[in-house]
Amino acid sequence: MRNRHRKAGDELRVSVTRSDAAAADEFTVPRIRPMMVLDALLAIQRTHDPAIGFRYSCRVGMCGTCTVRVDGRSVLACQTEIPERAEHIRIDPLAGLPVVRDLVVDTAPFWQAWKSITPYLVPDEDAAGMDATPAVIKPDSAERERIDPSLDCIGCAACFSSCGIASARRDFIGPAALNRAMVLVADSRDTAAAHRLDVVATDSGVDRCHYIYGCSAACPKGLDPAQAIRRLRKWRFDESR
């Protein structure tokens, strides 16, 4: 391309960690407004390297598959606006998960941890199925006031990546899975609370957390996994919940 004169703010430089050491890792893309990190990645794909590896699906913060680290912070690429004044950003894959290629990671360890807390409702068998009646639970009940603000986890693993303990793979179930455990333990429709509390009390459970609060700061849905962990710690010893 001809070396056109551009005024500052017309372009953005993007550094991307690549798996192949020989692949280009610095790109210049045109600045659009508004512009999310995902838009920068798409511009690289469309104009520089069709094979650059990154993931996305919904582009509206619902699927949780586009998570990357931008200048060190674990965020959703599709929901993170590039600051007006930024001239350069750096994009790395999530921490603590094996890289498949470029920015695409294998989320298996995250889901392994999720699975370990029995993440599905364990209902009373007589009260479950197509002919069972949904439970009557008031929206202002203590139970729902605990659960509702903690419910919209999209499994993006931003908390996992931002947690120094989970991402160092030091045998920690991690914030998202513990948050899910808290939600189910608090749910009166569930019958497996005792089992889950045993799991979270093991060595890889709540006691690994050092309360740095990285998880709650990172959650793109505004959930508070650190609070969930505190609750679980308390509930371990308190049958009255």
Binding site: P123, G129, P134, R189
Partner: peptide, 23 residues
Amino acid sequence: PRVINELETRVGCFFDRDEDGRI
């Protein structure tokens, strides 16, 4: 309606409630 029952009671979804606690 039967699938909603199943989503709530088996799958574990919880949909928004009216004041009286029903869906």
